[in-house]
């Protein structure tokens, strides 16, 4: 039996750069935001996609739910290639996959009441009559922890960031989707609210049997929710493993750095951290060889020339010459 919900095969997204037409004769520069990505997500799994800004992780999420068109590659969702869908067939399919965005302040229409905003997907996909839909909205509001009587006819501006994120989660889940992309859902929230929202996502998943792609820059919060974690750097996956393995024994130097960069609330732990110099380069000028080599403390000669491939070594999957 095949347990796969989504397989992404050789996904690429190149954004053309705007340059003056004089220069454009010579070469067409591209931002290689996503560069030849392949991975799978199983039914009921949460895959974490972790990386710094500019790693292309958000672009991957937006392509998977087709807010963005891929330049190349396939997105096999059950038996359907989403990359080939368009127009009406894509629009009606959208009830099966949803996205929760980073900024809860911006992801709700300020002029739409909470109840209407959550009901809208049901209306669009013609699910149930008016009474059914209202009952469904009440039910989902209850589930995300917002008392329906109190919130149904309020406007987003009356809600706090955490409450809005709950509304966005309710809207994403109201059509009973199979797959949800959660893009940095806690990044803009206050610390005491973050864990609440994470907990809600976990509960919703267990209850509705969802599959998540959890995009974040914060490895620590990924630990609580993800079954597997893929680490991205400059448009490529450089390591992918079970959550336990990643934290137990990170293989790629970049993964090690990300883990040690999580602040520890302990004033006595003044250990010398593993801090690389420099910052993530622009995806316009991607370094030759291994993309990470200019910042890598273990860089060898080969790293500057040959790009390592993502391959399996002793049951782990990593793209690094250290493990050749």
């Amino acid at each position: 039996m095949d347990h796969r919900l989504i397989s992404v095969i050789n996904l690429r997204k190149y954004f053309p750069l705007k340059v003056s037409w004089l220069k454009a004769f010579k070469e067409k520069p591209y931002v290689r935001a996503v560069d030849d990505l392949s991975f799978e997500i199983k039914y009921g799994e949460t895959l974490g996609l972790v990386g710094e800004s500019g790693s292309g992780k958000t672009t991957v999420g937006r392509i998977l739910i087709r807010l963005e068109d891929p330049t190349e590659g396939q997105i096999i969702f059950e038996d359907l290639d989403l990359a080939k869908l368009s127009g009406e067939s894509l629009r009606t399919k959208r009830k099966d996959f949803q996205m929760i965005f980073q900024d809860p302040m911006a992801s709700l229409n300020p002029y739409m009441r909470i109840g209407n905003a959550i009901e809208h997907p049901l209306k669009i996909h013609k699910m149930g009559d008016k009474a059914d839909r209202k009952a469904r909205v009440y039910e989902i509001l209850e589930k995300v922890g917002l008392p329906p009587e109190e919130f149904y006819s309020r406007f987003p501006r009356h809600l706090s960031g955490g409450q809005r994120q709950r509304v966005v989660i309710a809207r994403a889940m109201v059509t009973n989707p199979k797959f949800v992309v959660a893009d940095e859902v806690t990044a803009m929230l206050d610390v005491s609210i973050r864990s609440q929202i994470l907990k809600l996502l976990i509960d919703m998943k267990n209850e509705l049997g969802l599959t998540y792609l959890f995009i974040t820059h914060d490895l620590a919060s990924a630990k609580y929710i993800c079954d597997r974690i893929a680490v991205m750097y400059l448009g490529k996956i450089i390591e992918i493993a079970k959550t336990y393995d990643i934290f137990k024994e990170p293989l790629h130097p970049y993964t090690k750095i990300l883990i040690s960069s999580v602040p520890v609330p302990d004033p006595k732990m003044k250990k010398k951290k593993f801090i690389p110099s420099g910052e993530i380069p622009s995806p316009i000028n991607i370094p030759s060889g291994c993309r990470f080599h200019p910042r890598c403390p273990y860089a060898m000669e080969i790293c500057t020339k040959v790009e390592p491939e993502l391959k399996e070594i002793n049951g782990r999957t990593v793209a690094c010459h250290l493990y050749d």
Binding site: S160, G162, Q163, D190, V191, S192, I193, R194, S195, Q196, L198, K199, I202, D218, L219, A220, S221, K223, Y224, Y244, F247, K248, I259, V262, V264, P265
Partner: peptide
């Protein structure tokens, strides 16, 4: 106290998500 325990960490022995209930006051 609650703030300190609800910060996500990278320790593998600590897999339970703790949080502060409720919202920030207006």
């Amino acid at each position: 106290q609650l703030l300190l325990v609800s910060i996500p960490n990278v320790k593998l022995e600590d897999m339970e998500l703790k949080y502060i209930k409720g919202n920030l006051p207006s």
